[in-house]
């Protein structure tokens, strides 16, 4: 991954399908084959039914959701973000998976009008070939 100076996800045997899909700009969540509940991040055990053999399948979900909180990152303790600060991180509850919350960059930037409950849609930050991380953008005005 030459040229990338910020942390890149290293897929493991559980998470590999998630990152493969993200590279295609598709958001997936781990769904339990026993009860159908989502667990994110995926875990050894299904948080819905408690199965220790959840047979997780990564299924595509709509990444639209609502902002529960946000922060403007004016300083980062990680390498590779010095040219990006200040940037906005949003805490988003997914409409397609109530209770599941993701944290990602708000690509609209630090001047964007934010409030809790604001609707956002899924976006991706491309870090390299086949390598992208989920992010968000404000939904068009009038959508909350």
């Amino acid at each position: 991954m030459t040229g990338i100076t910020r942390p890149v996800p290293v897929p493991d045997e559980v998470s590999a399908p998630f990152w493969e899909a993200a590279g295609r700009h598709v958001l997936t969540l781990a769904r339990c084959a026993r009860c159908g509940a989502f667990t994110h991040p995926p875990d050894a055990v299904c948080r819905g039914c408690g199965s220790a053999d959840p047979g997780f399948e990564f299924v595509e979900v709509d990444g639209a959701g609502t902002v529960r909180s946000w922060t403007v990152m004016r300083q980062s303790f990680l390498p590779g973000f010095d040219d990006d600060v200040p940037f906005v991180l949003v805490d988003v509850e997914l409409a397609a998976a109530p209770g599941i919350r993701l944290i990602g960059r708000l690509l609209d930037g630090p001047g964007a009008p934010l409030r809790t409950g604001r609707s956002v849609t899924l976006a991706f930050e491309d870090l390299g070939p086949g390598l992208a991380v989920p992010a968000f953008e404000l939904a068009p005005a009038g959508e909350g």
Binding site: P7, V8, V10, M73, S76, P79, P134
Partner: peptide, 17 residues
């Protein structure tokens, strides 16, 4: 960190850390 492994893979690439 430039490689986000384990739990960190879900948040560090986004800059949440």
């Amino acid at each position: 960190m430039i490689e986000a492994r384990g739990d960190q893979q879900w948040t560090a690439p986004q800059g949440f850390f």
